[in-house]
Design a protein around this nucleic acid. Structure first.
Lengths: 207, 207
DNA sequence: TTTTTGACCAGATTTTGTTTTTAGTCAATT
DNA sequence: AATTGACTAAAAACAAAATCTGGTCAAAAA
């Protein structure tokens, strides 16, 4: 007699278990068998859903990236007043979201997205998408007459992202006295000040 | 009969040999004895000039930092036109200077100044001094009426430095397509664009 | 017949024990 | 008084053995 699939959302359960275990123990120190045991299934079953361990990681990171992207999309679509002001607020929110993810547990796989040189090339799609969101903001700003249309290009988006890079991990806080990692409050203050200058700069470059 | 010191500038010679060998082989892979042999002196003599190996490294890095600082000082004193324009040019020059140092040979001890998490706390003085230079520029800009005097403070200097951080090592070039390390030309283009926005932002914040 | 499993394997990683290197000292030498 | 290099303790490099783990697949379960 034909056997029916016992669990339908197995892939999803594996993802959830992976988030849990990767966050607690880190990616390298979590084995496929750990994940299987955690769910009470056989190791082989994991490989019925994912081809490799890395694929699980990528899926987990992807999920996180999509959350942030969704937030950005939502805000890109519903711009009320000034697009540039909206860009500023969005990036502040984005920086804080990432901070919360990463500091909740430093082993969180999302941290890899920002810190791992090894995986960085694999995440390029994420960065490209982020760049596209910024470009969208710039185009809206051009439509609203806040910046010159010829400034609403990819190059300007990259420049903006480079300027804002220090608001994302790894947090190299060289110029402040404080020894240890930035606090959430420090980040918020820095982000506000830096984003203000960057956005004002975009505006000014108009003239 | 009392013996006289055979070499007067021994400390200096040791520094020069250290730069040479550290650059070629790296800090860890250069031993004190290597340095001594390179100069044809005894190992113990090195310790008559320096207390530890790390002290030699710090001296070497210090020397490099002083060179960059001297450049900045020279430009701070001789501001012809707009202080903000001068700040922009100075930072472009600074970024390129550092790039040349660091890429000449990746083992160059100066690279540590920017890349080593281990040594970073030891170099805080360098960063503070750099911050002070920026502050000086801001004060001159305030005097010239380019920015509001209340903006010529430490906090703004830090914000500016954070914004310009991606122009210095380690070069995290996330948002560009290119896989490998930034070329000098790419850096120059990026630096010009980013510094323009930052400086324009400082000016705009005035209003 | 289809789904699930865990024993199995090769390669990577960790551990353990040994050897070599080296930062720093100091009694002997110049 | 100035200089040296043999010396030491600790660290680093290395090698060998033991363990772990990503991925496979024939067999078991349904």
């Amino acid at each position: 007699m034909a056997r029916t699939k016992s669990i339908h959302n197995r892939a999803e359960l594996i993802e959830e278990a992976a988030v849990e275990l990767f966050s607690r123990y880190g990616y390298e120190r979590t084995s496929i068998e750990d994940i299987a045991k955690h769910l009470g299934i056989g190791k082989g079953s994991v490989y019925l859903e994912f081809r490799t361990k890395e694929e699980i990681l990528m899926r987990v990171v992807e999920k996180h990236a999509l959350k942030i992207q969704a937030m950005m999309d939502e805000r890109t679509e519903n711009i009320k007043g000034s697009p540039l002001e909206s860009l500023k607020e969005t990036f502040l929110m984005c920086a804080l979201m990432v901070y919360d993810y990463v500091t909740r547990d430093f082993h969180t796989p999302e941290a890899l997205l920002y810190t791992s040189l090894q995986f960085k090339p694999r995440f390029s799609a994420f960065y490209v998408r982020k760049r596209e969101r910024v470009l969208k903001f710039l185009k809206r700003a051009a439509e609203a007459g806040e910046i010159s249309p010829r400034k609403a290009n990819e190059k300007t988006a990259i420049t903006f992202l480079m300027g804002a890079a220090s608001l994302f991990p790894p947090y190299f806080n060289n110029y402040t006295e404080s020894e240890q990692r930035m606090t959430r409050d420090e980040l918020e203050q820095s982000a506000k000040a830096l984003l203000k200058i960057l956005v004002d700069g975009l505006r000014e470059s108009n003239k």
